[in-house]
Structures are given as structure tokens and as C-alpha cells.
């Protein structure tokens, strides 16, 4: 894939990820962190996202984490199972793979475009790579996470089509649209224009 020109528009993609919600029970505290460590998982701090291909984990609610990885492959089932077996008394592990759709966004005008429906300050110096937040976008609840190569966007699957249509329509004035896959978000830096 050739590198897109810097003046290209918003690039969008989807990631059919497995999404596991880990919700800590009372007093799980450091035991949960140790348990996660044993499973080889990192639980990021509040408002943080960690991306290490092919996995993403983020925290936008206190004592709750969303763990994402490719939905296909034996690892997906193994991961959910490992959490349920390994940390059952410390946290609830809930499959949200069908509940949340994962959208990917990059391109210089991506954040400028999001300002048409998102009330968060997405200035690249404010919402920096490694940060995650839950908010509303185009009237639907979303979770945004800034990865090195762009933004990851989780939305309820029932409103994913609405959001996709909104993104497509809103991106139109911002130049030639492009496509994107998850690999591009783990690496690579994308210049961001922000008004």
C-alpha cells in the first residue's frame, strides 16, 4: 500500500475485534493486577490505552478495562477462558465482542471532522497517543482511544451503522476518503491537522 498523500482526507476502517470487559469486584485491587500480570495482560491506568500489536487494552471507567484483540483465531477463545478461570473471584469478564463495534480513523483532518459531533477537546496536544475517553459522538455513546497511527472508536453495535453513515457524510468535505486497517494504528505516525 503506497503512503497516502498528506492532503488526503479521512481514512476509515473497521476492526472485527474480540472485546472483553473486565470489571473488578470490590477489593480486587492489587490481586487483580497480579492476576492480570500472570495472564500476560497489562491493565492501563484511568483514561489510558495501551497498544501492542495485535492487542489493545484501555480504561475509561474506574476499575473496568476493555481488552481487544483480533476476533479470529484460537487466542480469542483462550483469552476469555483464561480470565474467567484465572481471575473469577476478582473480576467479572464479560464478552462484549458483539456489543461494541470497533471503528478506525486516521488522516490529517480526522480530528477536525470529529469536532462536528464530539464535544471533547481532541487537539493532538491534548488528546495524545495513549489516551482514551468515553463521550458522545453524533448523539451516540463512544469510546475514543488515541493510538500512534490514529484513533480507535468503539460504539454500540446497534448504532454502528448510524455512526458509520455520519462519519462518511461528515468526512466528505475533508478530501478524498481512504481505507485503513488496524496494523496502521499500531505503528506509524500520522500528521494531524487540527483547527
Amino acid at each position: 500500500m503506497s503512503a497516502p498523500s498528506p492532503d488526503a482526507g479521512v481514512r476509515q476502517g473497521r476492526w472485527p475485534a474480540q472485546v472483553l470487559e473486565i470489571a473488578a469486584l470490590r477489593g480486587a485491587g492489587s490481586a487483580l493486577a497480579q492476576c492480570a500480570h500472570r495472564l500476560g495482560e497489562a491493565l492501563p491506568g484511568p483514561g489510558e490505552v495501551r497498544a501492542s500489536a495485535p492487542r489493545v487494552s484501555l480504561c475509561v471507567r474506574p476499575q473496568r478495562w476493555l481488552l481487544l484483540q483480533p476476533a479470529e483465531g484460537p487466542e480469542a477463545a483462550a483469552r476469555a477462558h483464561a480470565w474467567q478461570e484465572g481471575c473469577g473471584g476478582l473480576a467479572a469478564a464479560i464478552d462484549m465482542s458483539s456489543a461494541l463495534s470497533v471503528l478506525l480513523l486516521s488522516g490529517r483532518p480526522a480530528r477536525e471532522m470529529l469536532a462536528r459531533g464530539c464535544r471533547l477537546d481532541l487537539h493532538p496536544q491534548v488528546f495524545r497517543p495513549g489516551m482514551a475517553a468515553s463521550t458522545l459522538l453524533a448523539q451516540v455513546p463512544v469510546t475514543l482511544a488515541a493510538l500512534p497511527g490514529g484513533l480507535l472508536l468503539l460504539s454500540p453495535s446497534s448504532t454502528a451503522q448510524h455512526l458509520g453513515e455520519w462519519l462518511e457524510a461528515t468526512a466528505r468535505p475533508f478530501g478524498e476518503p481512504g481505507t485503513l486497517d488496524i496494523e496502521a494504528l499500531f505503528s506509524g505516525e500520522t500528521a494531524t491537522r487540527y483547527p
Partner: peptide, 11 residues
Amino acid sequence: PFCGVRDEIEF
């Protein structure tokens, strides 16, 4: 305290 300053519409 968790999310930062947010607009009323989120609450």
C-alpha cells in the same frame, strides 16, 4: 473526577 470537565449533555 474521572473524566475531566465535560458538557452537561453527558450527565
